[in-house]
């Protein structure tokens, strides 16, 4: 790069150049951090994503509601006895994404299915109470989910995810 004739102190010169280059590189890397970090959700978005409470009392058996949490639709289904039985009859090992119905609901609240209503294929919203398994049917590319929200047929690779939630009381859940 340079033709500087400081052959007397080649090591000292090299050290200076390397040190300057290294410090400049560290500075450049540190500058990139805030420029990228600003793309993450800002503080108000994070605060707005706080847990929400949902009252289950008005949902009759066989009905379901859609609520939004962090901008995502959450299906809350009050399943009938028949639907629960259907979900539990099937051999878990035969499923594309093996998971038992018991793993997907809270013990003692077997009738309540809470899933994030976003198709695991490419993010469309499946329609409830449709499809061959009485669960969810995604109109975009034909993925079919059962009454436990598990993928049974179609291009989606995995089951509808269960959001973090807890029962505050028998008729109230907190999502998040």
């Amino acid at each position: 790069m340079t033709t500087a004739s400081s052959a007397d102190h080649p090591t000292r010169r090299d050290f200076l150049f390397v040190a300057t280059g290294a410090v400049a590189a560290v500075g450049a890397a540190a500058t990139v951090w805030p420029l990228v970090s600003q793309m993450n959700p800002d503080a108000s978005t994070i605060a707005a994503g706080a847990p929400i409470e949902v009252d289950l009392a008005p949902i009759a058996e066989g009905q379901d509601i859609k609520v939004f949490w962090r901008g995502k639709p959450i299906y809350i289904s009050h399943r009938t006895k028949k639907q629960i039985d259907e979900a539990r009859k099937v051999a878990v090992s035969s499923l594309p994404d093996p998971e038992s119905d018991e793993q997907r609901v809270k013990a003692g609240h077997d009738q309540w299915l809470v899933v994030i209503g976003i198709c695991t294929h490419l993010g469309c919203i499946p329609i409830a109470h449709e499809g061959a398994y009485d669960g969810f049917f995604c109109p975009c590319h034909g993925s079919v989910y059962d009454t436990s929200g598990r993928i049974r047929q179609g291009p989606a690779p995995s089951n509808l995810p269960v959001p973090p939630y807890t029962f505050v009381s028998d008729t109230k859940i907190q999502i998040g």
């Binding site: 033709t3 500087a4 400081s6 010169r13 200076l16 300057t20 410090v23 500075g27 540190a30």
Partner: peptide
Amino acid sequence: VFLILLTVLLYFTKKKVWAN
């Protein structure tokens, strides 16, 4: 602190480069 360090280093680097 960083900029002062960088400036000092650049000053000496520049001096070395220009020495000849």
